[in-house]
Design a protein around this nucleic acid. Structure first.
Length: 575
DNA sequence: GCCGTTTTCGGCCCGACTGTTTTCAGTCG
């Protein structure tokens, strides 16, 4: 069985959590967590590195000891050290860490004093009021644990970005209109445009803090006020989304924005650099060692400048090499919405869309696109009304006709053709060759094992009419994980054959994810950013794709649909 | 456990809040 980076980081995190619960040295625990994170951020497979005899210690945060453990995981699929620890304390204790307010020490206490090993046992202990008897715990803590147990039982606690946007944008409009509000911005993972967000952090400078806080907690969409203090208020909206509003001083605005935007790991790197320069960075500003007066903090740029770096866009702040790139003056010129000239996947009433070809075209043109590709489903996808060869031929004729009526806008004749179980495409070459573009996708048999699934895709790519691998990993946030695929092999073959990978902008898909986008870029594989719109309104989803692309370091040149139509068609042609 | 043009030993980001205490540990972002 192939070992993936996520398998390795998962084991290292487990070791970290368990050591933490056992009370091991904090810095030792941290080193496991950092190693895990750095492995997740890699653009290549660790198992490949091991196979090729590359030095794992080249990965930041991995020394000789950690490298040895990783090799053991790659070779055996497991880690002797983990088994040794789990012979001392139960592995299930790490489940308890998921509860907010329960950290490693308290989980350790619960286990040692009450023998609690599982979430279920914890629930019984809460019901029997056994928690409040423990030293260091109390009635309030017990109640909170009870609430947390209910909450994580109910749902995935992170919210999709698009959903958070739905609630955050109107709230921001409201706050901007409030008397006394000066500068205001959303920070946190929302500002980093992460695909899911935990809660929303809003920062504001205010003339009259008290009245602004008052207006905030009285916002019509507020369901519950969780905290209502002088500088920070916290509410839960009807949607369940938690929103914090923090009042900050004008002179600290930039420092606070940097601080609350994160990510935490990015911040740690900044503060380490500050230390090296005898400076201290916190949410109030940049301070020379031992001094009370800041040398910067009003603007975010000052924080970066103080540690010798240019401004770094929020989407990059994940400690995935952006600090080093900034240091070398080598930050990517991130793609923006304006760079895109067209949209390369969408559906019409011919299959499972809700608008006609012409309606989609006119809506796309109104958004400023120069071209679109109409990609209705192929016959195999019966639930979506997939087209057979004759139906697709009719659509081709219809598009030719409509194109006659356009000047300066072009509809590309295309299809979303199913990749069958054996790797063949769902339509014959004679109809595929009449199209400008083919997006190839897996819809059925998503659970094959890695070797079979990878071979299936590679085989499909051998077809000379294969242009773009659509929603490549098949994942859907909160619903379905990625298919088992060797993405390195797929990307290498895509480069060799002149195929491209899609970044599907559907909010629940956002497939490829940020890390795969960066990996494709580093390997020279170009990306197509598409909406997969099923209605005219969904054409606007393209901005979510752009968010993800920016998180994946993509520049205009890395994306095929930044090209004019003629150039794009030349690029698509395989020979 | 990692790391190093002041270090191969002695450091390892920083502050706020909460609940439990009576000066602080644990947790969080």
């Amino acid at each position: 069985m192939p070992i993936h980076n996520s398998d390795i980081s998962g084991i290292l995190r487990k070791v970290a959590d368990l050591l933490d619960i056992e009370g091991a040295n904090q810095f030792r625990v941290r080193s496991y967590r950092e190693a895990a994170q750095n492995i997740d951020n890699l653009s290549g497979d660790v198992s490949t590195m091991v196979a090729e005899g590359q030095e794992l210690t080249a990965i930041p945060g991995i020394g000789s000891s950690m490298a040895e453990k990783i090799r053991e995981i790659v070779d055996t699929g497991t880690l002797g050290q983990l088994e040794e620890i789990t012979s001392r304390i139960p592995e299930s204790l790490t489940d308890l860490l998921r509860l907010e307010g329960l950290g490693p020490e308290r989980v350790g206490d619960l286990y040692r004093q009450l023998g609690i090993e599982t979430l279920e046992a914890l629930e019984y202990a809460v019901e029997d009021h056994r928690i409040r008897e423990l030293e260091g715990f109390g009635a309030k803590t017990e109640e909170k644990i009870g609430h947390e147990l209910e909450r994580i039982g109910e749902q995935d606690i992170r919210t999709m970005y698009s959903e958070a946007e739905e609630y955050t944008e109107p709230l921001m409009e409201y706050l901007k209109g409030c008397e006394g509000v000066g500068k205001i911005a959303v920070a946190g993972s929302y500002r980093r445009r992460k695909e899911t967000v935990g809660d929303i952090d809003i920062l504001a400078t205010c003339d009259n803090i008290q009245s602004v806080m008052e207006l905030f907690v009285r916002y019509e969409d507020v369901d519950e006020v969780l905290a209502h203090g002088e500088t920070k208020s916290s509410v839960r909206l009807r949607s369940g989304l938690q929103v914090d509003l923090r009042a900050v001083a004008e002179k600290s605005y930039g420092a606070a924005l940097a601080y609350f935007t994160g990510s935490q790991r990015h911040n740690i790197r900044l503060r380490e650099r500050a230390q090296e320069r005898n400076l201290k960075i916190n949410e109030y500003g940049v301070f020379p060692e031992g001094e009370e007066h800041p040398v910067g903090g009003k603007e975010e740029e000052e924080v970066y400048a103080s540690v010798g770096l240019p401004y770094i866009h929020p989407e990059l702040r994940e400690d995935r090499g952006e600090i080093e790139a900034a240091e070398d003056d080598n930050l990517p010129g991130l793609i923006t919405l304006n760079d895109l000239r067209g949209d390369l996947q969408m559906h019409t009433t011919a299959s499972d869309g809700t608008a006609s070809v012409r309606e989609m075209a006119e809506a796309a043109r109104a958004l400023g696109h120069e071209y679109i590709a109409i990609t209705d489903h192929s016959q195999r996808v019966t639930v979506a009304g997939g087209l057979d060869a004759d139906e697709l031929a009719e659509e081709i004729d219809r598009i030719d006709e409509i194109n006659e009526s356009f000047d300066g806008f072009r509809i590309l004749k295309a299809v979303e053709v199913d990749i069958l179980k054996d790797g063949r495409l769902d339509l014959e070459d004679d109809i595929l060759q009449r199209l400008d573009l083919r997006v190839c996708c897996i819809h059925y048999h998503q659970d094959l094992d890695e070797e079979v699934q990878t071979t299936r895709v590679l085989r499909a790519m051998e077809n000379p009419y294969f242009n773009i691998l659509g929603h490549p990993t098949g994942r859907e946030l909160g619903r379905r994980g990625e298919m088992a695929l060797d993405m390195e092999r797929i990307m290498d073959r895509a480069l060799e054959y002149g195929c491209f990978l899609e970044l599907n902008s559907t909010p629940r898909r956002l497939d490829l994810n940020d890390i795969y986008c960066k990996m494709a870029k580093e390997r020279g594989v170009k990306i197509a950013i598409s909406t997969d719109a099923h209605s005219t309104g969904e054409l606007q989803h393209i901005r979510y794709g752009i968010n993800q692309a920016r998180r994946g370091w993509l520049e205009p040149d890395d994306v095929v649909n930044t090209r004019p139509a003629d150039e794009l068609l030349r690029l698509l042609h395989r020979d």
